[in-house]
Amino acid sequence: MVYKFRVILDTEEDIFRDIAISEDDSLEDLHNAIVNAFGFDGMEAASFYKCDDQWTQLEEEISLFDMGENPGEDTTMNSTTIGYILDEENTKIIYVYDFLNMWTFFVELGAIEEEEPGVSYPEVLFSHGILPDSMPGKSFTANPVSNEDIYGEFDDDFDEEDFDMFDDGEISEDYGYEDNWN
């Protein structure tokens, strides 16, 4: 059987790829298909996460590499087939590539079909949107309701006088630090 997925980048713009892959392929094969479909170099760590129907991430992580304290204890992509983790009832997983930039994708199973003779899988069926140069960041500086700095409420909590103990090297004398402590 062939599983057909829509892989959607978590951005405001519509950026997605439709990928067909054999149910017997591993999650590592799906990872490689996603990396190639979006044009990544494949040099970063990645993980799949189980989730519910509302895309709420569950605790189980399936990583590219075994990073557990005891080798063989963690579930890895190469040891997990697509058909084992996804089926007609469980159709969604979350994929994160490059944990520094947190490229996050929603991967949804759209169809399960018979393999077409002569077609090699995985295969990119459709491509929409251009991947941005960098993952759009989340802004935590403004309150969406008042459009004010979210840290502004703390600005008036301290006055200059509160920090007088740090003037003129008093702290090094009070706490016994030597002049060249590092």
Rank of each mutant, 00 (worst) to 15 (best):
G68L: 00
E73A: 13
D74N: 13
F48A: 02
A111C: 00
V96K: 15
G83Q: 12
A45R: 11
D66H: 03
Q54A: 12
N90H: 15
L109A: 04
L109W: 03
N78T: 07
A46W: 02
C51N: 06
I94C: 03
I85L: 12
D53P: 01
E44M: 10
S63D: 10
F106V: 10
N70Q: 10
E59W: 14
M102S: 07
G72K: 08
N78H: 10
E44K: 15
I130S: 10
I85F: 08
T91S: 10
T81W: 05
T80V: 05
S127Q: 14
Y49F: 14
F106T: 05
T104S: 15
T76A: 04
E73N: 12
Y95K: 11
L109Q: 08
E88G: 11
E88L: 14
A111Q: 12
E123D: 01
F106R: 15
T81Y: 01
G118C: 05
E115K: 14
M77I: 08
L86C: 08
I85R: 11
G129L: 06
E60H: 13
K92G: 03
M77L: 09
K92D: 05
Y121H: 01
T81S: 13
L64R: 11
D53L: 15
P117I: 05
N78V: 10
G72A: 10
M43T: 03
M43K: 13
G68I: 00
Y84Q: 14
E73Y: 09
E116D: 12
E113A: 09
Y84E: 15
N101G: 07
S47W: 03
F40Y: 12
E61F: 02
E108N: 14
T104M: 14
W103E: 07
N70I: 11
Y49M: 06
K92C: 07
W55Q: 06
H128L: 09
G129M: 00
D41H: 02
F106L: 10
G129H: 14
E60V: 09
I112Y: 08
Y121G: 00
E59H: 14
W103D: 04
H128I: 04
M102D: 12
T75W: 11
G42Q: 05
G118E: 13
E113T: 05
L109T: 00
G110H: 09
E69W: 04
I130G: 08
T91A: 04
F65W: 09
